[in-house]
Design a binder for these strands. Sequence first.
DNA 1: TACTATATGGCACACTCGTACTAGTACACT
DNA 2: AGTGTACTAGTACGAGTGTGCCATATAGTA
Lengths: 197, 197
Amino acid sequence: MPRKVDAEQRRQAVAEAVWRVIVRDGFGAASVRAVAVEAGLSAGSLRHYFSSQSALRAYALELIDQRMEARLAKVDRGRPPRQVIEDMMWALLPLDDASREEHRVVLAYMVQARAVPEYRHTVTAMYDEALALCRQAVDRLVQAGEAVPDTDAEAAAAELSALLDGVTLQAVSFPDRMPPERLRAVVRGWLDGLAAG
Amino acid sequence: MPRKVDAEQRRQAVAEAVWRVIVRDGFGAASVRAVAVEAGLSAGSLRHYFSSQSALRAYALELIDQRMEARLAKVDRGRPPRQVIEDMMWALLPLDDASREEHRVVLAYMVQARAVPEYRHTVTAMYDEALALCRQAVDRLVQAGEAVPDTDAEAAAAELSALLDGVTLQAVSFPDRMPPERLRAVVRGWLDGLAAG
DNA sequence: TACTATATGGCACACTCGTACTAGTACACT
DNA sequence: AGTGTACTAGTACGAGTGTGCCATATAGTA
């Protein structure tokens, strides 16, 4: 018998199957049976890892949040401010197929969260963290002299946060209109604008 | 019996019922039966106006697109450029409960469009029109001397488009974090920044 | 070798789904 | 008055849903 640590790996594998089904066929298609097939299990077997469908979906959301935070934590902080900030953005923004699919999952949950209160806490926490990150970015750029001193940090952070959500939405929904190079250019352009005043 | 013009009104009323169900219970909850109840009809009766569920959902998307374009067309063009541009933005952005719900519907379709190719054309057209509108806005501001002459209009339009999508997404998903005043402030702040260079 | 916990798959139940079909009603036109 | 069209409601069917239940298999332990 696999030990407990393997059970957690299996739960994660099932959650990743949830992501794939959501990306391929939409949130509503993530039925217990469809996820079980995607994960290579039977529906009855899946229920040994998740006692209900809502528990399954909730875990899949929690896990994607953890994965994104882990990716952000890996960014090397020992570089120039502007470089660290850009690296953080590139770690969070949908610049390749894998992260695009991740953000599609997050967006699907964000939309569903209005009908399913269970998702609201995690989804709102992700927004708050993104906004806080933007605020830190602006503060550091001001402190490093790469932004005009009279910058309204609060307003600039709100604007940056909206800009990042916008390019993310566009890259996720219209990947041919917002490819990685264009996405990077938009973000870099805004940061340059902050420096120029 | 009601004549044809009344039948079209009924179709629109049913489509609005679709919107309400999507906003309240999510896209997947817009079943034929649920929409029929919301519209005050029987499921069998609803099928006399829409031959299938996909036709119903497709019409509900087309109609919301028409409604938004109509709202945009109503903006008075005979005012100073900056005013006209702001008025257009306020006509399109989710600044009250009604337009917030409209954008929730659009966002739901945008997410579903990845699984249902039928929606892609309309949704992509809406994006393209928004981007074109941003491009026009930047051009007019440059022409009116309310933006620095060396502005990269293409890049600025892309940035503005992303910013608008971002504040829309935030106002729709986190209305308490992005209330109308804050949304207006973000947009005005960006336009001011364009003028300042 | 037994025993137990974990894991797996299959089945059954009540429910909802889209849709086809039928019957009945009300109005317009000849 | 008769005929046809538009409309409404209801029912039925097959498919898919979440979930409870149970039989089986495997691996670790006494």
